[in-house]
Design a binder for these strands. Structure first.
Lengths: 254, 254
DNA sequence: TAAGATTTGTTCGTATGTATC
DNA sequence: GGATACATACGAACAAATCTT
């Protein structure tokens, strides 16, 4: 790491940030679990020797990161709050707001992850999991008739990949796949006018998912990998043709 | 997701959060770039009809996400601030604090990404990039003599992978690899007493990195892939033997 | 160097809103 | 419905940082 110890007087940390950091430490030291109660506003004011406003700003900092939640009323106060996947995705999306991802970037990654993921799961799924995937793969049985319907089908298709990743039981992998799905679901599609809708590509994509479930069921890792790879290539081609553009907007706070 | 449309009146958004959201919208609508100036506290108070405390809480929310920075004094105020990779990693690490990643999880992902990454970069690196990688690969020329030295070598090794990913020019891939490196660099190693240090594994790992650079230089994608795969397997084995544990702590705000 | 201007940072007192009993 | 306990919000004053002259 190039800059581990910097000489410059690193920008003074404001008091709310200091308080927020101390509360984080407090939680980690005591190994407080989700839902555990934090000291009340008044107690923190006394504990840290700061004013109400400062404590409140510190709480908003922690709340924005998803680390705490607060409730009003008797029995209210601040509580340790598990960071949800939704929130983590939003926060991470803010980073890529400034990075301008291309379709190529996203699919380079998908092509690395998803075929291997599929192969690793051949023969390892429960019946209900296979059923759920099959339902998603076959939910739409005709090409989209309207932009709304098309969008709906796209989201369902992404949902298929998200669920598959979740079934892997690897939280890191699940998050990454799910994050890519989220970005892809949110992007803006500017359809070329002279390229209305490629039904053949659509049908191939649908069949790929159906074949994939079958390969997973019979435990054929090689077929699962190959099918997923074709599917990724087809999906990328469709996105490229439609001149899909990765969105530039902040995610709303969940 | 089980609960997509909930009936309950979803928890009222506090005023600071509302203000923060409106400022986000303001920035996106006007397509303000990094460094652009936001209205002053006083202007926001007038604009939104809220008190100073509320505006300040809103600013802390945005600041915690890395979206703005504020400075005091004349010419000071709030400015659009690009979310840094460091901050994004910290925020994401908070999510995995609650997820308990295992070494197996992380390496399943590394084994999917890094061999393909290496293959895709064969013959595509500039001389200075190859030189930098070579320097990282050869920096340490003897097995670690102390825990500190070992840690140092581990970090350098991870830095090798991080740089390689950055050279790919794919921000998504670069971030993921870099994030895994960060987690691995931060984890706690409980060395088994009867397994002091496997010098043979260490030497193999070092040689792998050297061979990899050579393969990249001569444009041999197959060799690059194979070498990286072996390297990943060796690294995983070393981590497993050392009973490395993924850390459980919040990251400090950068 | 010093003084003044500008903008955020922090405090305090008070009042309001909200959930529980 | 009323009392209670908590967070939420407001407004005015003062402190600190930093730029200009």
């Amino acid at each position: 790491m190039p800059e581990d110890s910097i000489a410059r007087p690193l920008p003074r940390r404001s008091r709310p940030v200091q308080v927020a950091d101390r509360i984080k430490d407090w939680v980690v030291e005591r190994d407080l679990k989700t839902g555990a109660r934090l000291p009340s506003e008044a107690e923190m004011i006394a504990q840290f020797g700061v004013s109400k406003g400062t404590v409140r700003e510190a709480m908003r900092i922690l709340e924005a990161q998803g680390l705490i939640i607060t409730r009003t009323g008797p029995g209210g106060g601040s509580f340790v709050g598990e960071v949800t996947a939704e929130r983590a995705k939003s926060l991470l999306a803010n980073y890529f707001y400034f990075q301008q991802l291309s379709i190529t970037d996203i699919y380079q990654m998908r092509k690395m992850l998803e075929p291997e993921l599929a192969a690793s799961m051949a023969g390892r799924l429960e019946r209900w999991q296979l059923d759920e995937l099959r339902e998603l793969a076959t939910r739409h049985d005709r090409p989209a008739q309207s932009p709304e319907e098309e969008r709906d089908q796209h989201v369902t298709s992404l949902r298929f990949h998200e669920r598959l990743a979740e079934f892997a039981g690897n939280p890191l992998l699940g998050f990454c796949v799910s994050f890519m799905a989220r970005i892809l679901a949110d992007l803006t599609v500017y359809r070329r006018l002279y390229e209305p809708h490629n039904e053949e590509l659509w049908a191939r994509g649908r069949q790929h998912q159906i074949d994939l479930v079958a390969a997973l069921e019979r435990g054929d890792a090689g077929a699962a990998r190959a099918t997923m790879r074709s599917h990724m290539e087809g999906a990328e081609e469709m996105m490229q043709r439609q001149e899909a553009q990765v969105m530039r907007r902040f995610m709303g706070s969940p």
